[in-house]
Write a protein that binds this DNA or RNA. Structure first.
Length: 490
RNA sequence: GGUCCCAUCGACUAACGGUUAGGUCACCAGCCUUUCACGCUGGCAGUAGGGGUUCGAAUCCCCUUGGGAUCACCA
């Protein structure tokens, strides 16, 4: 196998689409699997779509996802520049080459004329395809007129000349052999009237000179691949291998687009998904290397990646499974990383100042009950300050006639407990329950109520251990006082 | 509409001619239990339809149906 060189070639739209991330990821897995090179090229030939800071944002998001490039606008490389707007000379030069060898031609149609051609009456039998036998171009105008127009600097474009009787065949690693008739392929514009290349020209030229071995991209490119294949032939270049990835779909089975909810990786990152969980999930949209696993590290995915086994049909982006994936990573992600995330969340809501060790204990206490780290302050506000609100329904339901007596007894027992951990508290509660001939419920519910104010949370004794003796005693006393003074309208 | 692509549980997928069609999410039930979860066990659920080829088809071929992409001087 020749040297593997793949590229991710986004246009700088200002955000990274999840489909783009999947494409980048598969390119990355493929390259790393074969010890090849991963290249980032920015496709900014459309000057009307310039977005400030888009490239930085793109690189940043990719980096967050763990994708680094061997060659890019940022790190450079032997085949730069890696931004198309800095390569315009190449495109002009190569447009001239196909012009000279008869595979392309000048056309002078105005936008209005082209529009008129396409807006034929409904029911018209002819497809709205550029007909070079009737439109305004070097063939219909003749050589003299063409030279004259060029001399007086008339606006022109350069179009690819696809012979109607050509049969264009190419091989797709995922889909196999694909054949299209020349008469069904439009004479694609290669160079626009502003002198800028279209995607098709720039892409082929760059992929060739950047020595790209495999083009791995989304399925939406499949219909224009015959044009690209033809172009490689027109230049007399060896074609790279193609692999068209199945589309990412919304629940309505249509191409995932910005209209229906979050589709940018920045959105998901902001929502608090773990990087590794998100990447793991995205990687599994298209294929699974094994029959019985869902959780893979990036290294494992690289090791197991096989592009030829990628599915052909589109994959629906299922948020529920993504959430599940995130909860799985709550068990895997290093505690230090989670502490970092949690501390930031706390700081953002004005609750800075907790030490990392304490935050780590809180996370460990609650991680089985949450989906995201950022849910912690809301899920357990009592870990970060006095109880501001008691769940009144909970009290009504669980504060029974003997609750006060039990609480007072326990308070005295706990005051003498200098160990104050789960085992000591649980042990004490259990022997008290046995002595009284009651179950544990009538004990744990009031304790939970008094120390957290909420009906759900981690185990009562584990929670108390993390809260600490002083806080617990104080909260119990306060609650009993409030109860006595009728603060709760039961 | 033209062209091209695609078709396994509701969703993500495994099975690349021989399996009782497997796993995961979601859903349901049970167990565990200190609330809620987690976890564990079990359950529901699929080869779009019709023809071939073959001893044997989810798998290969054809047709039908359905879905999607694409048809810009965007990428």
């Amino acid at each position: 196998m020749k040297d593997v060189r793949v590229r991710f070639a986004p246009s700088p739209t200002g955000y990274l689409h999840v489909g783009g991330l999947r494409t980048a990821l598969y390119n990355y897995l493929f390259a790393k699997h074969f010890g090849g090179k991963m290249i980032l090229r920015i496709e900014d030939t459309d000057q009307t779509r310039f977005v400030e800071g888009a490239v930085e944002n793109l690189i940043n998001s990719l980096r967050w996802a763990g994708i680094e490039f061997d060659e890019s606008p940022e790190v450079g490389g032997a085949y730069g520049p890696y931004v198309q707007s800095e390569r315009f000379d190449m495109y002009r030069k190569h447009a001239q080459i196909v012009l000279d060898n008869g595979h392309a031609y000048y056309a002078f149609d105005t936008p209005e004329e082209l529009l008129a051609m396409r807006t034929q009456k409904p029911g018209a039998v002819v497809a709205p395809k550029y007909d070079r036998l009737v439109m305004k171009n070097q063939y219909t105008l003749g050589e003299k007129e063409t030279t004259r127009l060029l001399a007086e600097k008339a606006l022109y474009v350069i179009r690819l000349r696809i012979p109607p009787d050509a049969e264009i065949m190419f091989e797709d690693i995922i889909r196999g052999e694909i054949t299209v008739q020349g008469c069904d392929v439009d004479d694609q514009i290669l160079l626009k009237s502003d002198g800028f290349p279209t995607y098709h020209l720039a892409n082929v030229v760059d992929d060739h000179f950047m020595k790209i071995s495999h083009i791995i991209r989304g399925e939406e490119w499949l219909p224009s691949t015959p044009k690209h294949a033809f172009l490689y032939d027109a230049f007399g270049w060896e074609r790279p291998e193609f692999a068209h990835l199945p589309l990412l779909l919304n629940t309505g089975k249509q191409k995932l687009s910005k209209r229906q909810g979050d589709v940018s990786v920045e959105d998901f990152r902001a929502k608090g998904y773990f990087r590794d969980a998100f990447v793991n999930f995205i990687a599994l949209l298209g294929y699974n290397p094994t029959a019985d696993r869902e959780i893979f590290t990036i290294e494992e995915m690289i090791e197991l990646f096989d592009i030829s086994k990628v599915n052909k049909s589109g994959a629906v982006f299922d948020l529920q499974k993504l959430e599940w994936m995130n909860t799985q990573y709550l068990k895997i992600v290093p505690i230090s990383e989670m502490v970092e995330m949690c501390r930031i969340t706390l700081e953002n809501i004005g609750l800075g100042g907790f030490d990392d060790q304490y935050i780590a204990r809180v996370i460990d206490l609650l991680k089985e009950r949450i989906h995201f780290i950022h849910e912690i302050p809301d899920f357990a506000p009592y870990m970060f300050g006095d109880i501001k609100e008691y769940e009144i329904e909970y009290i009504k339901k669980r504060w029974e006639v003997n609750s006060k007596e039990i609480s007072v007894d326990l308070l005295e027992i706990f005051k003498k407990d200098d160990v104050f951990n789960h085992d000591s508290l649980y042990g004490a509660a259990k022997s008290y329950a046995e002595a009284k001939g009651i179950k544990l419920g009538p004990i744990t519910h009031p304790l939970r109520m008094m120390t957290t104010g909420k009906s759900v949370g981690a185990g009562a004794f584990e929670t108390m251990e993390v809260l600490g003796k002083e806080t617990c005693i104080q909260r119990m006393e306060k609650f009993l006082e409030m109860m006595d003074s009728g603060k709760f309208s039961l």
